[in-house]
Structures are given as C-alpha cells and as structure tokens.
Computed example of a mutant assay.
Amino acid sequence: MNKHLRSTEYLLFSVENRIARITLNRPDKRNALHPAMLTELRDALLEADDRNDVNVVILEGAGKDFCAGYDLAGAYAGFEGGTPPWDVNRYRTTNKSIDDDCWNLEQTQKLNMVLFDMHKPVIAKVQGNCLAGGTDLALMCDFVICTETAKIGFPAARANGTPPVQMWIYHVGPQWAKRMLMTGDNLWGREAARIGLVLDAVPVEELDNAVNELARRISFVDAELLSAHKRIVNTALELQGAKTLQRLAAEMDARAHLTQGPRRTQFKADMAEHGLKDALKKRDEPYGDGMVKAHWLNGEEGAK
C-alpha cells in the first residue's frame, strides 16, 4: 500500500530501476489541470520522495500533450457536476475579495511548489502542448526535456492574468521573460532550448530515449547526494528571491484579476455568452499563429 498516494483517478504511478514515473492521465482533456488532479500529483510526488527505491522522478503527460493548462470549463472543475460538495458561501471559494483570490492561488501554488521543495530530482518530459498551468509544472521541475515541436507558452497572459507560479525569470532572464509574458506568444521546443527555457529539445521519436537515459544516469547516484546537489542549487535560487517571488506572483495575479480592461472584460463576456472555445478564439485571433518571431530563433533551422 502506498503511504502518501491513496487515489490515482487522474494519474498513473510506477517505479522501476530507481525511477518513479508519474503520468498526468487525462489525455482526452489534454491533461488539463484541476484541484483534484493537482492534489493527486502532490501525493504522488511525496510518495516518490519518501520511497527508498526511488532516486529520480519522470513527470509526463499521457497522449499527445504534456499539459494544456488549467481546466477552464468551470471554476470548480474536477467536482462532479462542476459544483463542490460544500456551501460555497461559507468559504473563500467564490473569491469575493482580492485576499480570497490570493488565498486560493496560494493553495494551488503550494501543490506546485512540491516539485521545488522535494529532495529528489524531477525531469519533465514534454510533448505537444505545454501551456499556461502546464508551464507552472514544467518550470518547477529540475530538468525539462521536450520535443522540437512542443509548444510552450502562457497565452493566458494576454487577458486572463499573470503566471501565479513564476519561474520564467530564473530560466530565461528579464528580457525574454517580459517578451513571453507581455505577448502570451509561444515557443517551439527547439527555440525554448536555445534561450535556456528547457534543457534540451529532441525529435519526437527520440524523446523517450533522451528522458530515460538522463533518468538512468541520475538514478545511479545515491539519493542523499542527489538531494545535496538539488538543495544547494535551489538554495541559490531562494537567495535570488525565488520563494518570495512566488508569493508576490500570486498577489500580482490576484490584482490582475480585478482589472476591468477591455480585453479581460471581453473574454469574460465571450465565455459567458458563447463558451470557452469561442472566448479563446477571440482572445488569440490578433496574434495569428501565436509563435515567437525572433530572427535568430526562427531562421532556416527554426522548428516547422
């Protein structure tokens, strides 16, 4: 019996040869995240971190995508019928104030932060879409290996808010972080590797081998030594303000949610009247294909 992981409705979990494999398992929904799924993920990560037969973790998504973001179909996605089994007026769930919103964002943020705080290293294996909430997960991992044609970005930054889990600055520096967030554009995996957002980008058919080989090599190092390596590098990130920045990112996202700017107002109106698909289409239309068009990234060798 697993000590931490009591339910796996939305995940697959296995251990072999000192490697734990955790798979987001909602392929029909492009592995979109919701509270119940994130709670399971936290429990699976703690299970892997606690087990003596695990030295390294692979986090992946079932099907064509790693994770297309948060499930926006309903504010309470993940509950049967879309409604939580409690009186919403008794709790902060309805985000009546900016503090309510901050509180709720911080609870979700804590689930993501397990990736940073756990002692054992985690490799994100990214294919297809890695968008919005998908980047919240991937960029908290210790390594990201993706396909050359993976699509990575935070398009929700165009109208819906700012990333409440903020690791962009630590991977790519201030100019590229601003470039990505202020347009909501996406990068192909190959370009993401060139600017340091991911460790490596490989052809689709080589992804399994690339991730498995890195995990295999790491797995031969004792868990205690792996922990020392991870914790000293992450302490350096904390000295650069990484933990404090997460709190501020949640507060700034809550602040952004209060804006009555025309694009956010229009998005909410479109979603209420026509549904999520139409609202997303109208939000993203001005951006064309939504891909970064930097000359040195998109030359003859750019991903197609």
Rank of each mutant, 00 (worst) to 15 (best):
L72S: 13
L115F: 14
G134R: 05
V211C: 04
K304V: 06
D28H: 08
H295E: 13
Q240S: 03
V126Y: 01
R283H: 06
G196R: 12
D284C: 14
D117K: 12
T83Q: 13
K293P: 01
I98R: 11
A177Y: 02
V57H: 02
E40Q: 11
R231H: 08
E224H: 15
R21M: 07
K304F: 03
S219K: 03
V54H: 04
E80G: 06
N17C: 08
V165D: 01
Q246E: 01
D185F: 12
L111D: 08
A279N: 05
I98H: 09
A68S: 02
Y10N: 13
P174D: 12
K151Y: 01
R263I: 10
L248A: 11
V126I: 15
N234H: 14
G299F: 02
L139S: 01
R217N: 11
E224C: 11
L280G: 03
D142Q: 08
E191K: 08
L139R: 01
A159T: 05
A36N: 15
C130G: 02
S14T: 12
F79L: 07
I123Y: 03
A279M: 07
V15M: 10
E285N: 10
M291N: 02
L226K: 04
A228V: 12
E301I: 01
T149S: 09
P174A: 12
D101N: 11
A156F: 06
E238C: 12
E9R: 15
A75K: 14
L297W: 03
P174I: 13
C130R: 00
K3Y: 03
F220Q: 13
K230F: 03
V144N: 00
D185C: 13
P27R: 11
P155Y: 13
A75M: 12
R21T: 13
W86H: 10
L46E: 15
N209K: 09
A68N: 02
C130Y: 00
V57R: 02
N55P: 01
V292G: 00
K64D: 10
D200C: 07
L115H: 14
V114G: 06
A236H: 09
K110L: 14
N55H: 13
P84G: 01
F267Q: 05
E9G: 14
Q127V: 02
I169R: 13
P203R: 15
A44R: 13
A77W: 02
C146P: 01
S227M: 06
V56L: 06
L197V: 09
D278T: 15
L225W: 03
R18F: 13
V122Y: 04
T94F: 03
L33P: 05
